[in-house]
Computed example of a mutant assay.
Amino acid sequence: MSIKVAGVSKYYKQQLALDDVSFAIEKGEVVGFLGPNGAGKSTMMKILTTTIDATNGEVAVNEYDVQKNRNEVRNSVGYLPEHNPLYLEMYVREYLWFNAGVFNISKEKIEDVIEQTGLAPEAHKKISQLSKGYRQRVGLAAALLHEPEVLILDEPTTGLDPNQLVDIRSLIKSFGNNRTVLLSTHIMQEVEAICDRVIIINKGKIVADKKLEDLRKGQQQVVEVEFDYRVEEVLLKRIDHVKSVRNVGGFLYELTFDTDTDMRAAVFDFAHDNQLKILKLDQQNQNLESLFRELTS
């Protein structure tokens, strides 16, 4: 078991931040930890990384107790906090060498991590010169230096532009090939793009714990598409399995399908056949959106 949390509560003076929280994560899972702002996500992650202690309950990472075996936990966990703590005056390689010294890691490993996180084109620069997306890559590289078995990422895509989002999501998803990833976020698209399972927390309590494939079963699929011209809704309704069409505004349409088969290919074919260009195309998990709103509103 990579992570085991049993009956954990956390008080900040009189304020209850976590209320009898329990969950377990198997090795190799990529799990989305969802909740609105202030739900307790960051507090739980700080406990998992030994940054703070729980008031009550038991927590183990890679079967090490987070209070009794702090060093072992820190050696097996890579952590990217919500506010990525970087020394902006340092160069990228200099910063990674500085972090590597904590774990007595060779310079060859630093170059491996730079390559793995796509930092090579910017590695000669000062961190202050980097975009937000590349700064996040530096934080991820530092978290990966000691080859941790568990990655804990707290809001890793906050503030990124759409292109940076795609790159960082792809990078995080690749980490799940050989390690456990716990990803904190309040963005549904993050979970859809990266995770196998979702845990939802609200007001310090776990209110849902489900696999994404279970949420997709029997769901009402929604595809949001933007064309370069206005399209008659009657034409869009001819696409297979379309249940309803809604013009969101301008050339943006929301198509609801009565199937859980990915219908984006059908929308692409429709655009091609009608000589249209697609400017935007998103698929939404209506069940996940609905569940989140229901449990956290």
Rank of each mutant, 00 (worst) to 15 (best):
D112H: 08
T51L: 15
E226M: 09
E294V: 10
I199G: 00
F270N: 06
D269V: 11
V30D: 08
K237Y: 08
P81S: 05
G249C: 05
G176W: 08
L48H: 01
P121R: 01
S131V: 10
Y91M: 15
N178A: 07
N84P: 00
N163R: 10
H83D: 15
Y64T: 09
D260R: 07
K203L: 09
G218H: 07
A123L: 08
G40P: 11
R74L: 11
V31P: 01
T157Y: 03
P36A: 00
A24M: 14
M45W: 11
F175N: 03
V73H: 01
E58I: 15
L255A: 01
K280P: 12
N285T: 05
E82N: 05
S174P: 04
D228S: 08
F257S: 13
V181Q: 00
L281E: 04
N62G: 11
D282T: 14
I199L: 02
I25Q: 00
F103S: 09
Y229M: 11
V223F: 05
N62V: 14
F33A: 04
A142Y: 10
E111M: 12
L16S: 03
N37C: 06
Q14C: 13
N247I: 08
K280Q: 14
L288F: 01
G133D: 01
A208Q: 02
E108W: 13
E122L: 14
K203S: 09
E233Q: 13
K217S: 07
L171H: 03
T157K: 06
D282Y: 13
P156K: 08
L144R: 00
V223Y: 05
N37P: 06
K4S: 14
L16T: 05
E233M: 12
I52V: 09
I199P: 00
F175C: 04
E155R: 05
I127P: 01
T259Y: 00
A193V: 08
F175Y: 06
G139N: 00
F270S: 03
L183F: 09
I187T: 03
S131D: 03
S297N: 12
I200R: 04
E254V: 09
E192G: 03
H241I: 14
K107F: 07
N285W: 02
Q275W: 11
E233R: 11
V77P: 01
L235N: 10
T49I: 07
Y229K: 15
I25V: 05
